[in-house]
């Protein structure tokens, strides 16, 4: 299987502070890959390394076969980047920015850009700095699509977007990516949106990878169970083999686990804990994310 992104033992320090510790990940061609994590878990550091704006302390990250911090111009031509905050040349107008970028990309497809811009109902001479964040996001997405890249790296694409523009962004992205078999690596704080679009996900915890698997596998294999027992707080504790995370609210116990119901029952029997009302409660990706990373 060909890997568009491959990170091996990626480790990074800011001064003495360890941010990434031996991170390994692979992104297959044609997949949409979402990276999730709470603030400060190393998401931005990983993205900065992938984008070539940070050299890792050790380990390496290959993007389209080249080390990310020394990508050749020819490889950069094949990568579309969306920077956090929908960064754009604000001093240019809609037409100027298209004219500028088109000179750098031989496969430039202006129709993608003008199609998205047409939806905004703005004149070509409208300056980007006078646009709302949502409008700017359409300009940036249009420029990336027109570039016709093999790989799209989208850093927190949902930042500052209202629900309408978020939906528009996701709709266009999905259609473009599926139709043209592109590879996408994205981060976002809006997990409900990520759930709609990604094939694979990684969830980052403190200095380590909590999970790296296809979304469908996560949804199938990661479970949430609930039962009521005031004694549970004294008998149960987080255990990587059985209990990934635990919550106690009054006498209600919530267990997050990769084990099926029958094994959890057997486990609770083994620790002699009453669990007559034990039941599995379905989860969204956001709830699974909280289950894995904890609420605090």
């Amino acid at each position: 299987m060909e890997h568009v992104i491959e990170c091996q033992n990626l480790t990074h320090y800011y001064g003495d502070k360890l941010v990434l510790n031996n991170l390994n990940l692979k992104v297959e061609r044609g997949r949409i890959f979402g990276i999730l994590g709470k603030n400060g878990m190393g998401k931005t550091t990983t993205i900065n390394i992938l984008m070539g704006f940070l050299r890792p302390s050790s380990g390496k990250c290959l993007v389209l076969g080249e080390e990310s911090h020394k990508l050749s111009p020819a490889t950069r031509q094949k990568i579309g980047l969306l920077h956090e905050g929908h960064l754009a040349y604000d001093f240019m107008t809609i037409r100027q920015v298209e004219k500028f970028y088109s000179a750098f990309f031989p496969n430039w497809k202006p129709d993608y850009y003008w199609d998205l811009i047409g939806k905004l109902g703005l004149s070509d001479s409208h300056k980007i700095k006078n646009m709302s964040c949502g409008q700017r996001s359409q300009v940036v997405l249009g420029l990336i699509f027109a570039q016709d890249p093999e790989l799209l790296i989208l850093d927190d694409y949902s930042m500052g977007l209202d629900p309408g523009y978020r939906a528009l962004f996701i709709d266009y992205l999905q259609e473009y990516v599926r139709e043209k078999n592109k590879t996408v690596f994205l981060t976002s704080h809006i997990i409900q949106d990520v759930e709609k679009v990604v094939d694979d996900t990684i969830i980052m915890g403190h200095q380590k990878l909590l999970l790296n698997m296809p979304l469908a596998t996560l949804k199938k294999n990661f479970h949430r169970y609930e039962f009521r027992n005031a004694e549970a707080v004294r008998h149960l504790k987080i255990d990587d083999d059985f209990i990934t995370n635990l919550e106690f609210v009054n006498n209600k116990v919530t267990i997050y686990s990769f084990k099926p119901l029958r094994e959890i029952k057997a486990y609770l029997n083994a620790v002699k804990l009453e669990h007559e009302d034990l039941q599995e409660i379905s989860m969204s990706l956001e709830e699974a994310f909280i289950g894995l990373t904890g609420k605090y």
């Binding site: 984008m51 704006f53 111009p73 950069r76 980047l81 905050g85 960064l87 040349y89 750098f104 990309f105």
Partner: peptide, 14 residues
């Protein structure tokens, strides 16, 4: 400002 230089550094030019 706002690290906009990153846009330029990603252009396919040395």
């Amino acid at each position: 400002s706002r690290n906009r230089m990153r846009l330029s550094y990603h252009l396919p030019i040395s």
